[in-house]
Simulated scan of single mutants.
Amino acid sequence: MTGRPVGHRDPLARFHSYLHGGTSSLLSTLPTLVVFPVYKTVFRQQIHNTPVLQAVGQLYKEGPVKLYRGVAPPLVMRTLNGTLLFGLQDTLLHQLSLSSQNVTSAQPALAGFGAGLVEAVVFTPFERVQNVLQNGQNDRHLPTLKSVLVRLNAQRLASGYYRAFLPITARNAVGSALYFGLKGPMCAVVAGQGLSPVVSSFISGTLTSMAISLALYPVSVLVANMQAQVGGDVKGVTACWRMLWSSRQRSVTLLYRGGSLVILRSCITWGITTAIYDRQQKLSG
């Protein structure tokens, strides 16, 4: 950061936040490709409540071609998500600083909350398509991306592209608020141990995203189960949660099945994204 008051940043500096957010997320697409099988393994555990070895066995039997079925939406979403999330958070933070004489520690979190709300509106359709493609039970009647889009276009928004919109909004808004609220203070603590700025940013991004992923993991499981199917009996959030909780035998341990793999994915993607973004912001400042 430059040390200048946020309210005095010029429009070009705020544009850099959008550019750097997109760039950092784009550069992290390679790790996304590498860990996509991990993500898909977690998804199978979320949907079918299977142990990790059984989920890996399912993917192995399906073969390498189907292993990367559904990888396009998260790659596109990662790049656009970084652009919107970091850029919009910085824009909202600027507006908050203009309406307040003092920059408080709560403002980054509040701006992150607002950015998370917009993020949910924009990216819920991407997540919906991704979850339909990753569900192996859809391979026969929805074999291609085009077939999935045609089917979702025929549905109402609430049951089609915006299925599970409410839990996604809650997850993204709270997650973004925690990320932007904790990232800076945690980075300062890590930097106080004598580590370089890049390493400090990486560690702070990793630890922050790890904590958020674990705290909000049950919501992600709920979203995956709500979005995996197209058509049929469309139930509300409360009914779906009751069905999910019952299917997990009312066990928190079973509900968190696959959670350890989420930690691994968060360590790789958000750690790298945070380090690259903070470095670019510092160089442009």
Rank of each mutant, 00 (worst) to 15 (best):
S99E: 14
I276M: 08
W270H: 11
R44S: 03
T269D: 04
G22Q: 09
Q227G: 08
S209T: 07
A72G: 11
T274F: 07
K40Y: 06
G7W: 10
V118E: 00
M210R: 05
H48W: 09
R151A: 15
V103N: 08
R248D: 06
E119D: 02
L30H: 10
S147F: 01
L152R: 04
G112Y: 08
T253S: 12
H141Q: 12
S247T: 13
S17E: 09
I212N: 02
S260Y: 03
L207M: 12
A72P: 00
H141A: 06
G22N: 11
N81G: 15
V148T: 06
L12T: 06
D139N: 14
A170P: 00
V223I: 11
T2C: 03
N49C: 04
L244T: 09
G70E: 07
T238I: 15
L166N: 04
V174L: 13
S209I: 02
F180R: 01
T269G: 01
Q280I: 00
P51Q: 13
H94P: 04
L254K: 15
F43T: 00
S201R: 13
Y18N: 07
G205R: 11
R78Q: 14
T238L: 14
Y162Q: 01
S251Y: 07
Q137W: 00
K282I: 06
D10V: 01
G114I: 11
R151T: 08
C267Y: 03
V52Q: 15
E127L: 12
L110S: 05
R163D: 04
W245Q: 11
M186I: 12
S176L: 10
P51A: 10
G21F: 06
A215S: 10
G87H: 09
Q227N: 15
Q134I: 04
S260M: 02
L145I: 02
G57Q: 15
S147Q: 07
G175H: 06
G114R: 10
V52E: 13
R248I: 02
G63W: 07
S201I: 01
T83F: 15
V35E: 01
S100K: 14
L19E: 09
